[in-house]
Amino acid sequence: MSRILPHPVVSAALFIMWLLMNQTVSPGPALVGAVLALLGGWALALLRPGRPRLGPARAVLRLTGVVLVDIARSNLAVARVILSRQKSHYSSFVHVQLRLRNPQALAILACILTAAPGTAWIEFDPEEGWLLLHVLDLPDQDSWAHIIQNRYEKPLMEIFP
């Protein structure tokens, strides 16, 4: 099983993408898609990216919900900053100490922070674990560090043990 399908999730994603692009589930395109998915899985196995071990699915779903709500909220906050007439915001760089070291978890954290308007991941120092963020509207330095450590870092450490 693992020799034919070394990366089942990636293969399934490739197969679904192929079907979506063709907009059909008839046997011809499905067969081509299956071959493509198998080849993609093998090619990825040759690169040896290492297999991430995922934690409980409930934690993944909860983090997804939290991220969606936060992105919606920061969308409104940034829109207000842009549309406000006088300069009412104070933007600055923020240093955050992270305990997270798993590269996949760090990549997901970087995507979350950059995709949410209002925060941008600028630099990470992997040895000391310092993250340099740029925040558009800053109430105070410490609150952002606490938000990131409690809202995102803790669930990510649960998901990637």
Partner: peptide, 22 residues
């Protein structure tokens, strides 16, 4: 609009995500 109105480069870095998220 944020690309025009915000003052520094790092502030403008936040503006496009409004369109690319929601």
């Amino acid at each position: 609009l944020g690309l025009i109105r915000l003052k520094s480069f790092y502030e403008r870095l936040h503006a496009p995500t409004l369109g690319t998220s929601f």
